[in-house]
Amino acid sequence: MRTSTPSFSNLIKNPLAAVIVLLAVSLTLLFLPPKFTHHIKMACVVPVRPLQWATCFCSNSASNFFDRVLSAWQDVHREKQMEEQVTQFKNKLVEQQDTIYKLQNKLNAVSKFAAVHKNIKTKLVPADIIGYDTSNLRKSIVINAGSKHGIKPNDIVVSHNALVGKIISASGGSSVVQLITDPASRIPGRVVQTREQVIVEGNATVFCTLKYVPRWAKLKKGDDIVTSDIGGFCPPSLPIATVVENETKEGDLFQSVKVLPRVNISKIESVLVIIN
């Protein structure tokens, strides 16, 4: 009796074997460490990035054109600019308010804080958004600046003086930004009015939730959340979000608080990356 070992090409011809092989490859990819996963993703997607940029550019140009046509009748463009300015001033106001609070309470600490900030060499890199996440339950964007511009993982991304997210992977000319609304995002924050420390957590919707807000914390609608110094990866006092709803359930240790991020990601086309 003659026995022979089936070759790989014969094995792959069998449909069930193809299913098993592909599932095995997927499982192997699934259990790879995130660092390798990001490298593989970046390497595979790099050739598509120029196309992605071109598509996004054309889409934005077309959108801007239609906006301008509309503004001829409705003056939308001017209103939009005014809204943008108002948002910027509001965010600046929150930042100033937080700084004033700190000055009032701990003058010495703030002096040190200012001294530290003078010493830290930060560089700002402007970047355009060239892509969005394809999944409904994850929130990330792709920007057209990468390691060539000095960007590295964990750098902070802002827009209109407010926090947008952080860099999670960077290749030569592009980087992926994890937004604060992503379910995997956790940002240490502080409530400006009550000084409570909180964690701002994304939940794949347009809102975020605050974790670990004690029952006794007196939060109200409109309270502002800024980044805290805890953890050290975010510059302090950057506006993150505004409280829109809070509820204390019977028997719960913490309040459940819903906040609205300061930056509406669907309405911006460019961001700033803060490089430490």
């Binding site: 990819l29 996440d133 394809t134 999944s135 994850r138």
Partner: peptide, 16 residues
Amino acid sequence: DLFSEGSLGINSIFFV
């Protein structure tokens, strides 16, 4: 998977 944040391979498994 390539154009989305998260584990590589998860959508491949689900789609297959």
